[in-house]
Design a protein around this nucleic acid. Structure first.
Length: 486
RNA sequence: GGAGCGUUCGUCUAGUGGUUAGGACACUGCCCUCUCACGGCGGUAGCAGGGGUUCAACUCCCCUACGCUCUACCA
């Protein structure tokens, strides 16, 4: 017997944005498929008519693409198991339900949602285990058949066994067993003819030859029910691997209210997709060596399901930020140009009117000291004169005697013949020496005058980048403002 | 209420009977330095608790506590 080709899927329900937990599930599936040389499929589980949101799918696909997760089969791509939208596969589920009905593994249930709700309430009040009481399971077959034939609205339920236990092996948790008596008769086909998640999932995973199911661990309690469906249909279940959840700082779910929760949120905060993938991979998985910065290809090479561990993890944005910064250090300016241009444009800079070489130069000076793309918009002094000076620095640098000092420095700069970072440095050092001052005493006021900020790129490089005219103009403006008391 | 899953520094993790319990982020001291960042060298800080098993438990078993999830004609 040969081992079948690995096939995994990410099967989101398009009911909202792609949150980081879902993204991590997608990443692990993708990583595993790529590592094993298998297939990664995208399947849309749109069986909930009430919660369907057409826009969610568009964004979901955009987010997956942004993360760099490509699928081998699925929406936009097609494949041998089309369609990849569950809403377009209804006949398949209905046929499966039909078969289970015919084989005596399922039965029609005519109980109304009102009755079920009441039942649940009763069970809750009396502290009884929840679950369907199986009233319709006892209906004589001919009676039930007649009611169905008469067109009475009904659902189809699975006949779960009363005794024994259902066991499955989770790849990262080992064997997990459930007493069958706690498994009630779940709904397979809803009143509107649509399948429930459980039925659709089993039918599709089987039809699409899925070998490994990697999904969130909230599905663990549903897994024995799925096993029951596999059995009823005579199918071989895939390998199950339940992924731990991702929590917010301080515990609890990640939410917009706590800052950010979706992939889109983090994109807007200025994180790179590669940093996001790297970071999320490290939540619940590690390569087993002291290695954290891993480019996509390294991740693929190192990834194994066996090294996923079951503990839920807290999303530490500080660490994401650090990792993002590591990518900033390693990418060149050209990489950032298309990413940063729109941000500068949004901040009101006419980027298209500026020479690309200048923009690249600015990026080169900034990227190593930035952690997020949004940091680039803190340094608009590259494009326009500062309209204010950072308050604390102003008090420190623009005090008594700073106006005359700046005026002297203006002369120094004017006297620099071959204007460049090196020649400015030489001139500044010479001035400092002949005036018995430390260069730092020159540098800090100059920096504040030309950038408005107390920190930034090396001063000489900054002066060089801005150009002599701009530097002199800004120095003069500073002198005026200091003299005028701001 | 029931069922299931989980528990190593604040956080992410390494660790599979014998380790000074290792790394990273964060915090912090020093160095580098024109600032900021980067980088280098240090520091603080952890096996949830209790029973076993064993010559020996972070590692194996049981119990408790705590956290999370499910308990829908939602996924």
């Amino acid at each position: 017997m040969t081992t079948p080709r690995v096939r995994v899927r990410f099967a989101p329900s398009p009911t909202g944005y792609l949150h980081v937990g879902g993204a991590r599930t997608a990443i692990f599936n993708w990583l595993f498929a790529r590592r094993m040389g298998g297939d990664f499929l995208l399947r849309v589980e749109d069986t909930d008519q009430a919660r369907y949101d057409a826009n969610a799918l568009v964004e979901l696909i955009a987010d997956l693409k942004w993360l760099g997760l490509d699928w081998d089969e699925g929406p936009e791509k097609g494949g041998p198991h089309e369609p990849y939208f569950q809403s377009q596969r209804l006949p398949l589920y209905q046929a499966a339900a039909r078969r289970m009905l015919d084989d005596g593994h399922a039965y029609p249930c005519f109980c109304t949602s009102e009755r079920l709700e009441e039942l649940r309430e009763q069970q809750k009040v009396n502290n009884l285990p929840a679950g369907y009481d199986r009233r319709c399971r006892n209906l004589p077959a001919d009676v039930a058949a007649q009611r169905v034939a008469d067109g009475e609205k009904h659902v189809v339920r699975l006949k779960a066994p009363f005794h024994g236990e259902t066991v499955f092996t989770d790849l990262i948790r080992g064997p997990i067993s459930y007493q069958n008596r706690v498994l009630d008769d779940m709904v397979l086909l809803k009143g509107d003819g649509f399948p429930t998640y459980h039925l659709a999932n089993v039918v599709d995973d089987h039809d699409m030859l899925i070998t490994h199911v990697l999904r969130g661990d909230e599905w663990i309690p549903s897994t024995p029910r799925h096993i029951l469906i596999y059995k009823a249909l005579g199918y071989e279940p895939p390998v199950f691997c339940h992924l731990p959840v991702i929590l917010a700082e301080g515990g609890g779910k990640l939410s917009k209210r706590k800052g950010a929760a979706s992939v889109g949120d983090y994109r807007e905060l200025g994180y790179l997709p590669e940093a996001m993938v790297n970071f999320l991979s490290l939540l619940g998985w590690s390569p087993g060596e002291d290695l954290e910065f891993m480019e996509r290809d390294v991740l693929v090479e190192k990834f194994t399901l066996e090294r996923i561990h079951p503990k839920s993890a807290v999303f530490d944005e500080k660490k994401l930020e650090w990792l993002n910064g590591q990518y900033f250090l390693r990418r060149d300016a050209a990489f950032f140009l298309p990413l940063v241009k729109p941000l500068w444009a949004k901040a009101g800079i006419e980027v298209d009117a500026l020479p690309e070489a200048y923009l690249l130069h600015c990026i080169a000076l900034l990227k190593d000291r930035s952690k997020r793309l949004t940091d680039f918009t803190d340094s608009l002094y590259f494009f326009r004169d500062p309209d204010s000076y950072e308050e604390k620095a102003r008090q420190k640098q623009f005090g008594e005697g700073s106006a005359p000092l700046l005026e002297s420095l203006i002369s120094v700069i004017e006297g620099v013949a071959d204007y460049s970072a090196a020649s400015i440095e030489t001139a500044y050092k010479a001035f400092a020496e002949s005036n018995a001052r430390k260069v730092g005493e020159l540098i800090h006021p100059t920096r504040l005058a030309i950038s408005g900020m107390p920190y930034g790129p090396g001063l000489y490089e900054l002066m060089d980048a801005l150009g002599k005219d701009t530097v002199l103009r800004r120095m003069k403006i500073a002198v005026e403002k200091i003299s005028a008391g701001f």
